[in-house]
Amino acid sequence: MLHTVNKSPYEKGSLDTCLRLAKQGSTILLIEDAVYAAITGSSLESKIRQASKQYEFCVLGPDLKARGLDEAKLIDSIRVVDYGGFVDLAVSHDRVQSWL
């Protein structure tokens, strides 16, 4: 299953709940305000690094760029995808679940 998360982890529990309930081996794509979770040096970094052992993390590049976030500062286990990559992820997984 592909999970998308679009809320800032500092404002909403969407990412927390996704991490709590997504099955091991799932892919988690951070989009919109959830891209703030992908950056190093935050209070969340160790949590995301820990979760990276169980899940494949991706982040939507255009949403990082829009927010002035530098790809060089991404947590290294997170892969950047563009819109085409988002589509590829959606079709390569049997289902998509959007955590709002």
């Binding site: 299953m1 309930l21 997504a22 679940q97 959007s98 955590w99 709002l100």
Partner: peptide
């Protein structure tokens, strides 16, 4: 439990979140 929910979600054809 959350663990049971994880398994239940895997059995669904479609999941809508609100």
């Amino acid at each position: 439990s959350g663990a049971e929910l994880t398994e239940l979600m895997e059995q669904q054809d479609v999941i809508l979140n609100y």
